[in-house]
C-alpha cells in the first residue's frame, strides 16, 4: 500500500511572503501554492472548495497584525478562519486541517517548511474521514 502523502493547499499573501523571490521559480518547487494579493482576498468558498477538491489541509499565510497593505485583510481572514474551523468538524474535517500563520518572509523560504510541518501533522491525523 502506498504511504499516505497528505495534500496541502497553501494560499499566501504577495505582500508578506516571497515577494523578493521569483514567483515562478518558487512556484515550481511548491505544490498547490496559490499566491494572492492579500490574505483578505481568500474567501470562505475558496477554502471549502480546496477541501472539496481533495485537500487534506489548507494553510493560509498572511501578514502580521497591523501590517496589512490593505488596512486589515489579514485580520478579516483570521476571524474567518476561526469560524470555518468551527464548521469543518460537522463535515468530518478536523479543525487542525485549516491553519493560518501571520508573519513576514520576503524570500519565501519558510513556505515549503511550513507546508512540510503541516504535512507532518496531517500524517498523524490520516486521510479526511468524509461524511
Amino acid at each position: 500500500m502506498e504511504a499516505y502523502n497528505p495534500k496541502v493547499v497553501c494560499f499566501s499573501c504577495n505582500f508578506g511572503w516571497g515577494y523578493l523571490n521569483n514567483e515562478e521559480t518558487l512556484g515550481a518547487t511548491i505544490l498547490n501554492w496559490i499566491p494572492v494579493a492579500c490574505s483578505g482576498k481568500i474567501d470562505t468558498h475558496h477554502i471549502l472548495k480546496a477541501f472539496k477538491a481533495g485537500a487534506d489541509g489548507v494553510l493560509i499565510l498572511g501578514c502580521p497584525e497591523g501590517h496589512c497593505h490593505f488596512q486589515d485583510g489579514n485580520y478579516q481572514t483570521r476571524k474567518k478562519v476561526c469560524l470555518i474551523q468551527k464548521v469543518l468538524g460537522a463535515f468530518g474535517i478536523e479543525p487542525e486541517r485549516l491553519d493560518m500563520e501571520m508573519a513576514i518572509d520576503p524570500e519565501g523560504k519558510k513556505i515549503p517548511q511550513l507546508i512540510a510541518r503541516m504535512k507532518n501533522d496531517l500524517a498523524k491525523l490520516g486521510p479526511v474521514k468524509r461524511i
Binding site: 470562505t44 468558498h45 476571524k79 474567518k80 476561526c82 469560524l83 464548521v87
Partner: peptide, 20 residues
C-alpha cells in the same frame, strides 16, 4: 460560505483570544 464571511467581517474583536 457567504454568510460565514459576512458574519466574521461584522465581528469587532481585537486579540486572537478575543476572536476565539
Amino acid at each position: 460560505p457567504k454568510f460565514l464571511s459576512t458574519l466574521s467581517s461584522l465581528l469587532v474583536v481585537e486579540r486572537d483570544d478575543e476572536i476565539k
